[in-house]
Design a protein around this nucleic acid. Structure first.
Length: 539
RNA sequence: GCGCCCGUGGUGAAAUGGAUAUCACAGGAGCCUCCGAAGCUUCUAGUGCAGGUUCGAUUCCUGCCGGGCGCACCA
């Protein structure tokens, strides 16, 4: 039996050998994983499974480790270590073959993602004002995850939901009208300066417009800005779904009828309620679907919207929301769950809010008051690459305080430059190789190459990208990837310091190291690409 | 009051329940006649408190303490 070459395949192969050796079903070996050993351990990968398997097998962990070591095969040097670890070192030839595996275009595709159709909705900022910096977090999360899921083999559609109907949009129109007439916006209206600018650019006939016309105009203008902001941030949505489309097809009415049919609604005080608490026990109390004034709540419209997504054939819906909306999650799960049972999975990713720090003061951002840093401004000051890396580097649960002064002044602190620097350095090495007449494509004899420790660390790091992407998918967060890229960059820099790549006197070593660097550069470019960050040739 | 999230060196973060807790920034000490010093090497410094589960806890559970966010016929 030969064993595969990617880490995932190596892991599966080792697991199956272990299962055979111990007479176990593979299903019973869920804890069998390859892990990176701590730095003081001189091994490539380690397996902690014998400790976990001790109860199952009713043997001492170290005994299991010794048996496992014997069962693993000739591609490795294995060592069993108390209390029951097995540490492995790959034969050099295995490492070279594994690297070549990384050259295949779909090398990260996972079988379990094949056929998955994921709808990823994020940002969905209301079209009532400029996007602020906090939208950058949702945009980074969503767009990076979309790219990662695609790399893993899923089909992903990204979507931005536009609330272009309703009271807020009416207020927006009235605020614009007021600005045109030189008045202050109405109470609870939109005070920001952007409406003054928009009013100044209105066509002459606007003087005779209805409120609806003002609203439609304002929404259209703001949507243009949102699209431009997202584009400048490296985010392009597959679809901008207008709420008005939903009403045009009668979605909310259908959803309401379906809920009624299942006996999940009742009327009280002239309003229509969803009886989630009694029927499904998923939410803490009943919620209104249709208000006493006859208007739908957003709850009903959103149920209809998610049914619409399922009707388009998606097997998995993911919504990314800021923590200020987390209270909305239980009722949506109850509402959508009631009508979409069996249609696919439905998952919320909640990311914590972004607080803004200016000087020594931490302030809450308020759109109405006009006190915010716009995403556009941030991107212009700091650059999209640094912004995206910075946002991607934190898990969604972390509470993030954005220090504006720091971001503007000392953007070099951002590790994105450390990572990009590797790419640029390697580019220039390849340029130098051409000058010195060293052919990067020249072959080398693997058997004559002794892999140095720095090179070994680098190669292992390269192989680890695959697991890193799976970690990102598992945790719904790209932050594992930024950590990984920083570590890979560090491995490269150590290697670079120790090992001279281009040596006209030694073409064999030069060719071998260029082969290595080609992969490092490809992995850096791939990883940065998944984060929507550029991989520059020069900096 | 109830619910969700968070508490890791001076600062910001990492760690599917695994071995001596990993990085970056800041601070100390070194390193460019040599492929890019936006770099390398090295030192100082850390899991809020109290219990529990476990062979093993930063991770899981309970209670405190501290912080963020929600608790609408708003969106």
């Amino acid at each position: 039996m030969t064993i595969g070459l990617k880490l995932s395949i190596l892991e599966a192969g080792l697991k199956s050998r272990a299962a055979a050796a111990f007479g176990l079903e593979e299903a019973a070996m869920a804890g069998f994983h390859l892990a990176a050993p701590p730095p003081h351990i001189a091994a490539d990968v380690s397996i902690a499974w014998p400790i976990a398997g001790a109860k199952l097998l009713r043997k001492p962990p170290l005994k299991i480790a010794e048996e496992l070591k014997a069962a693993l095969g000739a591609e490795f040097e294995a060592e069993s270590v108390p209390p029951g670890f097995v540490n492995l070192k790959f034969k050099d030839s295995v490492l070279f073959e594994a690297l070549k595996e990384l050259e295949k275009p779909d090398c990260f595709a996972r079988p379990d993602f094949k056929g998955e159709k994921i709808n990823l909705e994020f940002v969905s900022a209301n079209p009532t004002g400029p996007m602020h910096l906090a939208s950058g977090r949702g945009a980074t999360l969503g767009d990076s995850l979309a790219r990662i899921y695609r790399a893993l083999g899923a089909e992903v559609a990204t979507e931005f939901y536009v609330n272009n109907v309703g009271k807020q949009v009416e207020l927006l129109g009235l605020s614009l009208k007021a600005r045109l007439e030189g008045k202050e916006p109405p109470e609870n209206g939109y005070q920001g300066a952007y409406l003054k600018e928009m009013a100044a650019a209105l066509p002459k006939e606007a003087a005779g417009w209805t409120g609806t016309q003002f609203s439609e105009y304002a929404v259209a203008e703001i949507l243009k800005l949102h699209r431009a902001d997202m584009k400048a941030f490296g985010v392009e949505f597959d679809r901008w779904f207008l709420e008005s489309e939903l009403h045009a097809e009668g979605g909310p009415a259908k959803a309401l009828a379906a809920l009624k049919e299942r006996g999940m609604v009742y009327e009280k005080e002239n309003a229509v309620w969803f009886g989630a608490a009694t029927e499904l026990e998923s939410d803490d109390k009943d919620r209104v679907l249709v208000k006493a004034d006859g208007r739908n709540t957003y709850f009903l419209n959103d149920i209809a919207y998610h049914l619409n997504k399922f009707s388009r054939g998606f097997t998995s819906l993911i919504d990314i929301l800021g923590a200020d909306h987390h209270g909305y999650v239980p009722r949506m799960e109850a509402g959508v769950g009631a009508l979409a049972a069996g249609k696919g999975s439905f998952k919320f990713i909640i990311h914590q809010q972004v607080a803004l720090k200016r000087g020594e003061e931490t302030v809450k951002m308020s759109k109405r008051a006009g006190d915010f840093i716009s995403l556009k401004e941030l991107v212009e000051e700091v650059g999209a690459d640094a912004c995206r890396f910075f946002f991607a580097a934190r898990g969604p649960h972390t509470h993030l305080t954005f220090d504006v002064d720091l971001a503007k002044k000392k953007s070099n602190d951002n590790p994105v430059f450390y990572v990009q620097y590797v790419h640029a350095r390697i580019s220039s090495i390849f340029a130098n190789a051409a000058e010195k007449g060293i052919d990067p494509a020249a072959g080398f004899d693997q058997s004559k190459v002794a892999i140095l420790p720095e090179e070994r660390a680098l190669i292992l790091k390269l192989l680890w990208l695959e697991k890193t992407l799976s970690d990102c998918a598992r945790d719904f967060s790209p932050h594992h990837l930024t950590t990984y890229l920083s570590e890979l960059a560090a491995s490269f820099h150590s290697f670079y310091d120790k090992c001279k790549v281009l040596d006209p006197e030694n073409k064999e070593t030069s060719a071998y190291r260029l082969f290595l660097l080609k992969h490092v550069q490809a992995v850096i470019a791939k990883g940065l690409g998944l984060l929507g960050v550029s991989a520059p040739e020069r900096m």
